[in-house]
Simulated assay, not measured.
Amino acid sequence: MTDQHDAPRRALVTGATGFTGGQLARTLVERGYSVRALVRDKQAAKAHELAAADIELAEGDVGDAAAVSRAAEGMTHIFHIAAVYRSANHPDSTYFRINRDAVAHVLAAAETHGARRVVHCSTCGVHGDVAEIPADEETAFNPGDVYQRSKLAGEDLARQAMADGAPVSVVRPTGIYGPGDDRFLKLFRTVENGTFRMFGSGEIAYHLTYIDDMVQGLILAGEHPAAIGEVFLIGSDRYTTLNELVNKVAATLSVKPPRLKLPVAPLMAAATLCEFACKPVGIDPPLHRRRVAFFTKARAFSVDKAKRLIGFRPEVGLDDGLARTADWYRSMGYLRSSPKAVK
């Protein structure tokens, strides 16, 4: 059951030049929405790609309240996907300006222009390193870095709006991957060329979401009547371990899985020193503590609430999703053009 209003559906998507926002915007067009994207630069290549997909462009920064309000005029739905992700060359204030303050701008614009639904994209990272396996929407917050703290501050605003009766839903994605994304490219490349190293035991839990399933969850959160006033974790049916993930990537690429395991403490110490050396001069360090956290922080969640309340059904399993992702990397020239047989 979804939103059955007869009026035309017009959606504003923030963050549409990014991986998740772009796929969401295109899917909304396919579903009959008129879609507008708030972009910082209409002349950028990513903006041109959106325009070619029949998506209207509104120029402005999501951190600018007036720009957000102009973009929201006439919209029935707002999907707020834009965020500043982890990068050590940003000051903390930048994270809070975008990941917290922009949420306030979106909520105010939605109220001003009478949007029927607002979906705020948060992150499972607000739960941090979870001790409860699998965690759920009621698991205690435990943000571990400025990105997660700023995302939690933004989500706090969205949940307060929900408590005040606004037609808002919050989605907390697990790790999103698939064709079009390059965040997992380093993992694929290093497994393929034999340079990947596991730090720690590799038995830490990890939870992924294929991009098509993520978009399904976001749209359900924006359409289903039962989604209003609710928070949903969105992810695949099952979580995995880093060892299993790496072995599956190796199998997808037809290479031998890596076996060497190294202690994680020296890597974390090196990452800490690297950040402290680079941040004062505005350089993005080659090694971040957040990258080391990939090997140390447990991420495993239940998506039962989204299944029960809004009919969320993950459709792409990990093996299939990794294969599709590898095919896209090959098509882009990021990996070898054909798999190399395991010897």
Rank of each mutant, 00 (worst) to 15 (best):
E155H: 06
D156E: 13
L157M: 12
R159S: 04
A161C: 13
M162Q: 14
M162N: 01
D164P: 04
G165S: 09
G165K: 03
A166H: 12
A166T: 01
A166R: 01
V168H: 02
V168L: 03
V168N: 02
S169G: 07
V170M: 02
V170S: 02
V170L: 01
V171A: 08
P173E: 06
P173K: 01
G175M: 14
Y177G: 00
P179N: 11
P179K: 03
G180T: 14
D181K: 00
D181I: 02
D181T: 02
D182Q: 11
F184Y: 10
K186Y: 13
L187H: 10
R189L: 13
R189C: 06
R189Q: 15
T190Q: 11
T190E: 15
V191L: 10
V191C: 07
E192P: 04
E192H: 02
T195K: 10
F196G: 01
R197M: 15
M198L: 14
M198D: 05
M198E: 11
F199C: 03
F199T: 06
G200T: 08
G200P: 13
G200H: 11
S201E: 14
S201A: 13
G202P: 12
G202D: 03
G202S: 02
E203C: 10
A205D: 13
A205Q: 13
Y206N: 06
Y206S: 05
H207M: 06
L208N: 08
L208W: 10
Y210I: 07
Y210R: 00
I211T: 07
D212G: 04
D212N: 12
D213L: 04
M214E: 14
